[in-house]
Write a protein that binds this DNA or RNA. Structure first.
Lengths: 314, 314
DNA sequence: CCGAGATATGCTCATAATGAGCATTTACCC
DNA sequence: GGGTAAATGCTCATTATGAGCATATCTCGG
């Protein structure tokens, strides 16, 4: 995987994938066990080194993912390249070779776990990101710890800066912005509140191997932003679905609830979907019409997406 | 620079920067001469290999830029990591080592060229991206060539796909989306209409060394998108400026004209700026009040930016 | 000093987009 | 048949947008 042994002064380049899906109204990420990690950090993302045989970065990534999880990828998008020394905190700055990791976001429909790979809810790693049931109770403890960290800053100015960042990312100021997943994680990291940064407990969610949780945070933030201006949600949906299902997936991804009638009005007037002839025998209630994604929308609108409102509702 | 000689199977990692500024109402990019390139491709972005002495990717980038151009960078953001085989067309796929390039976007206020570095207008490289004076005449020839390329597709289906992409990116369908700079460049590249892809002429703008024009396209697209939801324009502005200057800079970046009164209403109601006491003796016309960026807006709004309208006006 | 030309600013107005609800329909379960 | 659960259809008040009209102030050429 990444963090392999040095062989020369040339950098090592790893590839890693945050593979996301949404099944049963719960957002999922595909994880694999990682050996040789500290306790509580044995979960990771599918990953492996870039090899000379790989024709491109993305092809190399697909190869690693299929080998490790049996999952073949559809939609793939590069996220970010993480440098090692940004990532490590163990002070290994003596000028050795670098180890980079190019992280990708992948969206898949079916969850077909293979080998030791397992699908986990996102919110296992970021419990405070799920606000579908209102403000998560875990949040209070987290924010309290963050505020203590702000208090103990070296200077008052630094303390104020920390306080501002807490307010900005965790919502005291201007409400909750669901896209700031990475900023929230980084704040927790800097405050030493996650095991990846040396914390003893996992107050703020399950830890991961290496810097994989940072990559996952990057992926979630990117996806949450992108559904607003690109019809990427449909990469996660089956070919036919009801508007209710679509809404629940969007809510699962964004972590906030939406006003039902307005949601369907939005989807309809954006021309994102079209009716099929069939309906479903849902769980309870009136049967819903099955819809399908209208590909033509890509040619009609400059930025077709589901611009979610800032607010929330039932 | 990148594309250096192979030394092992380990990948080579390069760093490159698209350093952008806006002076005299014209958007600029800092370029350096690149030796050993084909004719017409002697211009490039500041770049250099990642070295073991570099503490982080970004610090390495800053070091290279200062060494090559004397410019110190303020705002820096990672753009994308380009893999070599995605980049090259010379068929060197025999399984050698990889050469990657991590590209960055940097925004600076003052243009202080040093050594051989020079500031050039963006639109030297992408003439068809500047619509401030209306639809650029160069565009017709470009689109005509693209359409010819679509015609000569192997299959009708592929031809239709190409036609759709042309319409989508160059505006036949759904109007002009100023953010799709990269998609437009890639289309031209695929169609073989740029020197980087083997074209003899530079019908679609000045070429650059390596894949630097692709990086620049990525940078422009990112910036054009980002000004809409983050107050990054102010990284390009002096401490005090008039609303007219701000508007002209935004227009220069986005390449489209905006309705003046609505622009100032937007800026005002978003709370992005505050008045200073002073006014300017402009070129002609009534003196304008000098404004400054209101940093506090970062704490107040979730996504403070200048969401430009789709349309344009005088 | 006057009028033209060039901006900067203030305001108005029609239309579209949003945020919240109310009211009906149509299944399924007792 | 009555109750519960969704899915749908519509309405309404509030904002946000896109376009203009009207004024205010400078500079410049006569």
């Amino acid at each position: 995987m990444d963090e392999a042994e040095p062989s020369a002064a040339a950098p090592l380049v790893g590839l890693a994938a945050a593979i996301l899906a949404a099944t049963l109204d719960e957002p999922r990420v595909l994880t694999v066990p990682v050996a040789g990690q500290p306790a509580g950090r044995g979960e990771g993302l599918p990953a492996g080194p870039l090899e000379p045989a790989h024709p491109t970065l993305e092809r190399g990534l697909r190869a690693w993912v299929e080998r490790q999880t049996g999952q073949s990828l559809g939609y793939v998008e590069q996220l970010y390249t993480f440098g090692d020394r940004d990532r490590r905190r163990d002070g290994r700055d003596e000028g050795g070779q670098h180890a980079l990791s190019v992280a990708y976001l992948a969206l898949v429909r079916e969850a077909r776990p293979a080998a030791d790979a397992t699908w986990q809810s996102w919110y296992r790693y970021f419990p405070y990101e799920d606000r579908r049931a209102g403000r998560p109770p875990a949040l209070d403890a987290v924010v309290a710890r963050l505020e203590a960290w702000a208090e103990e800053a070296a200077s008052p100015a630094e303390g104020r800066r920390r306080g501002d960042r807490i307010g900005l990312t965790f919502g005291a100021a201007g409400g909750w912005n669901e896209e700031r997943v990475l900023e929230r994680y980084e704040l927790l990291f800097e405050a030493g509140l996650v095991p990846e940064a040396g914390a003893a407990d996992s107050l703020a969610g399950q830890a991961m191997a290496f810097d994989h949780r940072r990559m996952l945070a990057t992926a979630l933030g990117r996806l949450r932003g992108k559904i607003k201006y690109r019809p990427v949600v449909f990469e996660l949906m089956p070919p036919a679905f009801t508007l209710g299902q679509l809404q629940r997936v969007v809510e699962a991804l964004s972590g906030v609830l939406l006003h039902k009638q307005n949601f369907r009005r939005l989807v309809a007037q954006q021309g994102l979907v079209e009716e099929t002839e069939s309906v479903t025998a849902e769980t309870g209630g009136r049967p819903a019409r099955l819809m399908r994604f209208r590909r033509e929308v890509l040619l009609e609108r400059p930025a077709p997406g589901l611009r979610l409102p800032a607010g929330r509702a039932g």
